[in-house]
Design a protein around this nucleic acid. Sequence first.
DNA 1: CGGGATCCAGAACGATACTG
DNA 2: CAGTATCGTTCTGGATCCCG
Lengths: 129, 129
Amino acid sequence: MLIDTWQAWDAAGGGFEQCPIRNVLDRLGDKWSILIVMRLAIKPCRFSELHRQVPDISKRMLTLNLRNLTRDGMVLRTVYPTKPPSVEYSLTPLGRSILVPLGGLVQWADERFPEIRGNREQFDRQDAD
Amino acid sequence: MLIDTWQAWDAAGGGFEQCPIRNVLDRLGDKWSILIVMRLAIKPCRFSELHRQVPDISKRMLTLNLRNLTRDGMVLRTVYPTKPPSVEYSLTPLGRSILVPLGGLVQWADERFPEIRGNREQFDRQDAD
DNA sequence: CGGGATCCAGAACGATACTG
DNA sequence: CAGTATCGTTCTGGATCCCG
């Protein structure tokens, strides 16, 4: 039943660029979006505060990711016309709603990663023979 | 509580390359892994059959993705020494176990994508002003 | 049949400098 | 403060040819 979604799009000839899974995963798959969403899940945050809290992200990437998330309606961008300007980012209801399925994936990753790491080491040892 | 995993890794100084979420999402985020897992969830499959069923994937990418999934222990690679050789790929228990959290994400994507698409269109219209 | 090796295009990403 | 602009790098994925 998991595959049905994809096959339905396949059969419909809608093109895979329009497939919901493809679109969602393209966003989640990039390097920073999830980090940003997770930070904003704790509390709304200003640009520079986010920049400090998300480790090693460049201003450029923070800007681009925030724009994409805002475009998708996952993040709300609020500008306060102070001087100098301050901008606060927060999760929309849509943004918060993804925390649920995301939580399941995070839990899976946590539980299974030791196993995965072990598999990789074993695989790489065989490869070295 | 979702962020805790990441912050724990942050605090532990383990380096983000060792973070379970990063590792799992790097795999799921690439263009084909999920497709392949979903196909194999239906039934075990040989290389050329997979190549036909996963739309538009190149042999190169199919090979690379299958190797990564095999390395992680998500996929089992079985070689039958026939002539010409035949190789069957199937999901391991680990590979099947990710179908559960993945299902949650797929459901979310299906339910929310129309909303996301609408948000994008609206955003792009404002941008054009 | 099931790949491996090589080359190449484009996208993602990073560093730095600059701006209202 | 909150970005933009530009450049260079790295990484992903596709095309093609080759191999046992």
